[in-house]
Amino acid sequence: MAKNFSDLVQPILDDPVRAARVAKFADEALQDVIAYQFAELRRGLGIDQEELAKRLGMTQAGVSKLEHSADPKLSTLRKLIEGLGGTLTIHAEIDGRTIRLAHSAAA
């Protein structure tokens, strides 16, 4: 008889070592997706890492490192987005209400 997905996953979640390993892989995958999305945004705007580095007053290697940062600071995200000519806005949605937490003006 076929098992459903939750029946297959439950033994992994019940094992703390395996569950931690799955969480680590999921976190790494999310970081890769974010780095890819940012690079695609930059490329879509026709800006290469060297151009962005000039705009930010840093090296191309520094831009690459920022793009692939595992857990970038809000100030880092703001700097990168403003370097692309954009505005970083962060909102929280709680109980149907939207609250603006941060907003930056384009450079």
Score class of each variant (00 low, 15 high):
Thr98Tyr: 05
Ala2Glu: 11
Asp32Val: 01
Gly96Leu: 09
Pro16Ile: 07
Gly96Arg: 10
Gly96Lys: 09
Arg55Gly: 04
Leu13Asn: 10
Thr89Ile: 11
Glu50Leu: 14
Ala70Gly: 08
Ile12Lys: 08
Phe25Thr: 12
Gln60Gly: 02
Asp15Gln: 10
Gly46Pro: 13
Gln37Leu: 12
Phe5Ser: 05
Gly62Lys: 05
Gln60Ile: 01
Ser64Phe: 03
His103Ser: 10
Ala105Asp: 14
Thr98Ile: 14
Leu8Cys: 08
Lys73Gly: 01
Glu51Gly: 07
Asp32Ala: 12
Met1Tyr: 14
Leu41Pro: 05
Thr59Arg: 11
Asp71Val: 05
Arg42Val: 03
Ala19Lys: 15
Met58Leu: 07
Ala23Gly: 08
Thr98Arg: 15
Ala61Lys: 11
Thr98Pro: 07
Leu30Met: 12
Asp71Met: 09
Asp27Ser: 14
Pro16Thr: 10
Leu101Asn: 03
Ile94Gln: 13
Glu82Arg: 15
Leu74Cys: 02
Thr87Ile: 12
Ser69Leu: 08
Gln37Asn: 13
Ala106Pro: 13
Glu40Tyr: 06
Asp71Gly: 10
Leu77Lys: 02
Gly62Gln: 07
Glu93Met: 11
Leu77Asp: 01
Glu40Asn: 14
Pro72Ile: 00
Val17Met: 09
Lys3Asp: 09
Val22Arg: 12
Ala39Arg: 15
Ala105His: 13
Leu52His: 06
Pro11Asn: 07
Ala61Leu: 07
Glu40Thr: 14
Arg21Cys: 05
Gly85Asp: 03
Phe5Ile: 10
Met58Ala: 11
Asp32His: 09
Gly62Cys: 03
Ala35Thr: 03
Asp27Ala: 15
Ala106Cys: 10
Gly96Pro: 09
His91Cys: 05
Ile34Pro: 00
Ala29Thr: 07
Leu66Met: 10
Lys54Gln: 12
Gly62Ile: 03
Ile81Lys: 03
Ala92Tyr: 02
Ala70Pro: 09
Ile99Asn: 08
